[in-house]
Amino acid sequence: MSEWKARRFWTTAEVAEQGDGYSVLLDGREVRTPAKAALILPSRALASQIAAEWQAQEGTIEPLSMPHTRTANSAIDKVMPQHAEVAALLADYGDSDLLCYRADSPAELVERQKAAWDPMLDWAAETLGARLLPRTGVIHQPQDPQAVALLSRRIGALSAFELAAFHDLVSLTGSLVLGFAAFLNAAPTNRIWEISRIDEFWQQEQWGVDDDAQDVAERKSVAFQHAKHFVDLARSDS
């Protein structure tokens, strides 16, 4: 038996001011989240993007073609009720950041990691005030608790919409530093993604490209680009 899908029932999707935020109206009816909460967005830019996703639906509604709507739903239904827990989850990356765990050989990989990752750790120390130190090997070695606590406070100050996207920026790269770098425009988004994949690029050079792994990497890249776009729209003044 085929799965039932909701069908388009509206003619026009548009944005309306709603208190301090913005809502999306389908023929004058407010869009709600899967948990039936009001879909109130923090910026007109984000609301306009979501309205465009609804307007683009034809026939049956395809949630996978509505990434900004899905992330906004997650921000309201999942992140808002457990903001502290999500922030704490991400703060843990500061104590085991990808950029801090270095290979001890071969020399070329060691140098590539150093050339790509040291500048990002320097940026975090200068811009975020948190100096994280690199280690050789994969055995966990705790970072300075004060540096981790400072990063944790920065995460806790994010809005639910920022945190929903920030979660993906961090988890997809495995790096709290790179998540902040993308969030704060420290480098082009594509470059930050490439920095997170130094080890994968090395493996490809040694053993060739695995098609399945490449497909996964491409999907993650798209998700990373989306998270960056979402947070930019959420923080927009327009």
Rank of each mutant, 00 (worst) to 15 (best):
R153Y: 05
G129T: 11
H83D: 04
G59Y: 07
Q113I: 02
L158W: 04
V31F: 04
A72G: 07
S48C: 10
R131W: 01
Q82D: 14
E62S: 03
S152M: 03
R70C: 12
R29D: 13
N185G: 07
D144R: 08
F183W: 05
A47L: 04
A149N: 06
D199S: 11
L89K: 14
V86T: 10
G28M: 09
A72H: 03
H226I: 14
A37E: 14
N190R: 10
A116G: 02
S43I: 00
R235Y: 02
E194L: 08
P42A: 06
H68V: 01
A116T: 11
K36W: 09
M80V: 12
D92V: 03
A149Y: 01
P106G: 04
P81G: 02
A157R: 14
A227V: 11
Q57A: 00
D20Y: 07
A37T: 09
G94Q: 00
L41C: 07
F230I: 03
L150N: 10
F224L: 13
P145H: 01
A116K: 09
F161L: 02
F230A: 09
G156R: 11
L158C: 07
P145N: 03
Q143F: 00
P34R: 10
L26F: 12
R8V: 07
P42H: 08
A75F: 06
S96I: 01
F183I: 03
G174M: 02
D122G: 08
R154W: 05
Q146G: 07
D144E: 10
G19V: 03
E162V: 00
T173R: 00
L172C: 06
S171K: 13
W117T: 10
I61N: 00
D144N: 14
L109V: 01
